[in-house]
Amino acid sequence: MTRRIFGVRTLGLLGLGLLLVGSYFGLFVAPAERYMGQVQRIMYVHVPCAWIAMVCYTAAFVFAVIGLWNGKPRWDARTTGAIEVGAVLNALLLVQGSIWARATWGVWWDWDVRLTTSLVMLLLFAGVLALRSFVDDSDRRATWTAVATIVAFVDVPLVYFCVRWWRSLHQTQSTPETVSPAMVLPLRLNAIAILLIAIWLIAQRAKLERERLRKEQVDEPARVTAGLEVTDA
């Protein structure tokens, strides 16, 4: 047990180290972009956050399907961890995107496809976490979280295409698609770094959820019995 947590922590520390190295390359080694200049360096933390937030939500979806299917509490803990970490990265992503928009277009918000989809996505999954926090019964909480996660995740591609059509008359993204090798390295390093950190945080959050469940079951057998009596009456 201790060994496994130690393993995940090593992963997290490795991620932190990589993040420092990758950011160093991104900030000081990679060349300034032709049109966007220094501002483009935001990309080295922005794009990895976006990728990994999406990975977290996808993982949450997969965990939710497994959890719904086999009903084991540990999958519920993992789903919650993945959603919460995904939401944190998603929130950071929005702030970075907003700064990016201000620096390049002069406005704090642009109804760009990806930015808008990210905002809707954050609200979708924050709703799932809110729903979860209101359910007292642990089995029901797990089932409802899984159901709501699946419903929310299926919506993401729909929102994306919808926003794309919605603003189809406007310009397309100005994110550079052609990137030089010196730009790819920090991007990849930071993506791996944030992935490792996310795994570490999800493991921590899942552990917290398991501890909570354990505590609930130790503390409140009386409440459960009382609840059964009311249902029978």
Binding site: S23, L27, R34, Y35, M36, G37, Q38, V39, R41, I42, V45, H46, C49, V88, A91, L92, V95, Q96, I99, W100, R102, A103, T104, I197
Partner: peptide, 23 residues
């Protein structure tokens, strides 16, 4: 080239700092 954004380091620093603080 024309149209290059000059400077902007403060935006970059803000973005990295907010990410670090958030995590």
């Amino acid at each position: 080239p024309d149209g290059t954004i000059v400077g902007g380091w403060s935006y970059v620093i803000a973005a990295y700092a907010i990410t670090a603080v958030g995590l």
